[in-house]
Structure formats: C-alpha cells, structure tokens
Amino acid sequence: MKTAVGLVGVGLMGHGIARNVLGRGGFPLTVLDHPGNQPLDDLIAAGARVASSPAALAAASDMIILCVTGSPQVEAVLAGEGGVLEALRPGAVVVDCSTAMPESTQKMAAAVEAAGGRLLDAPMTRTARHAHEGTLNLLVGGDEATLREVRPVLDSFTENVSHVGPVGFGHRMKLLHNYVSIGFMALLAEAAASAELAGVDPAVLVDVLAKGGGAGVALQRMAPSMVAGDAGAVPFTLDNALKDLSYFRAMAEAAGAPHEIVDGVVRALTGAVAAGHGQAYVPDLVRLLKRP
C-alpha cells in the first residue's frame, strides 16, 4: 500500500509538488479545495481527489504536506475549526513546507504529537520552476526516523533533502537562507538602479559583476531584470519577501543577534509594499528603487 498523501496549498510551488507526487511518485493524492489554488484540472485528471476541509483531507491521508504562506495559515490549517488535528490519523506525519516562525513550528509540533501524529518542518528552497521539475531542496527539522519514513514521497519532488536538526531548525535555516538570498537580490537591485541613474550600461555592470565578486546565483536571477526589465525569473512577491525577512528579523532579535543590515532591507521592502507594489516580484526592485 502506497502512502496516501494530502496537500494543502496548491499555489505556484504546491502545484508542482502535487504533479510530481502523483506522476513521478505514483502516490494517491488528496488536495484541499481553496480559492487560492492554481487550477486543479490536470491534477484531477491524473487522479487527485479534492477535500472540502483540512479535517476531511486529514481523514484520508497518512502524510500531509503544507505549502501555505506562513505561521498564521499553518496554525489555522492545523488547529483551527475543521482543521487537520480534528481528524488526524494515528501515526500520520505532517510535513510543513511553508516558511514559518520556528516558535510557532515547535508549538504546532507539540499539538500534532498530542493528537497522535508527528511533524517535520521542511521548508523549500529554489523556485516554482524547480517545483514543477521535481528538483526542489528541502531543509528538514525533526526526527530522523520519521524523515526516513516519508523520504520516498519527498524524493518525488526534490533533488536534495538536508536534515538540519530538531523540529524548528528547518524553519530557522530557511529564514537564514532567505535573508541571504533576498538580501543579495535587494543589494543588486539598488546597485542596478544607482548604476542606471549614473549612466552606467546595465549590461556592462552585469558582465563586470559576473567576472568578479558579484558572481553567483543571485546575479544570475537578477540579471534579466537588471538588463532588460524582465522580472519573471524570480516569481516571488515583495509581500512574501517582506514576510520572510520580518520573520528573520524577529528570530535575530529574539536571539540577541545583530540585525542592522536586515533592518535596511526591510525598510526598502516596506516602502515598496506600502506604495502598492506588494504583488510585484523581487527583481522589480530594480525599477522600484529608481529615483526621479
């Protein structure tokens, strides 16, 4: 009998995960009906079932993957009215692929355990394209034996799965990762805006950076926007970037760690979001940071 999988959050990332759980993995899949989903037609045609509530999804699943926005959504799906915890199967595993606050994750892990299940926090890195290709990276916090148990399902949509510590450490590592990644991209956006306003050819700037200390994945992702104004290489909204960096800042502050640099990035993101650009993608900062 193959593991029955439930998936909450069929958005840009979750849709690719669902396709690979069904197609590459061949696992029976139930997805939650939600207005924020991508179209489900291809998943239903491939055999996915649709549940009307998180509780109904939990009742049909041995393993539940969460791919939602952040901690408030995770807590609502798990512990809210009609939530997963109301119908969790004994021994079921919840795999939280969202980006969430570690303290909330630990609280939810205790609630899942009290309901007879287990929780792994397994946030993703890479992009929606990698989700559809089945080459995501996961940063997993939690029990190693539980991770081994669900690894066949995770392998259907990932390239690398790293066990980074106990519950909550997956989300700690993800916040660190996203701070570095988004911070690099924000820095490049400001440099590109400054260069263009100073009359520097953006293509020359990208070439110089690529041959020197600015080379790397962040530059590769930002280059289309820096040179041609094409922000589609990183379909990650400024709303989400601000949420992630706000989570990181809260984690750093709680640990007594410095946060002067992230404060500057958060101010830049807050300004763009407050100006009505929350649904713009991170590479759009090149355009938004220009001054008249």
Rank of each mutant, 00 (worst) to 15 (best):
T127Q: 05
G26L: 02
V265K: 08
G264V: 03
L138G: 03
S71P: 09
R291C: 12
T146V: 15
A193G: 12
C97A: 10
V77I: 08
G212E: 07
K107N: 08
M1T: 14
D230L: 10
E103T: 13
R267W: 09
D207R: 13
L205F: 14
A186F: 01
P292T: 12
S98R: 13
P202H: 11
G141Q: 15
V94A: 10
P72Y: 09
S194N: 07
M222G: 01
L40P: 02
E75A: 09
L176T: 04
H130K: 08
R129F: 12
H163Q: 06
C67S: 04
A145L: 05
C67D: 00
F184A: 11
H130S: 07
V204D: 07
L78R: 10
D263V: 03
V206F: 15
A58T: 06
E159S: 15
A76D: 13
V227S: 00
A92F: 09
V5P: 00
P72V: 11
I182A: 03
K211E: 09
D207M: 11
N37K: 03
M226C: 04
S53C: 10
V282A: 10
A59W: 05
G80T: 01
H171A: 15
T105C: 07
L154T: 00
A203L: 11
V50R: 10
L175C: 08
G117V: 06
P235E: 12
D230R: 15
G11E: 00
L219F: 13
A87Q: 14
L176Q: 05
A215E: 02
F236P: 01
A218S: 13
D239R: 04
A79V: 02
D121S: 03
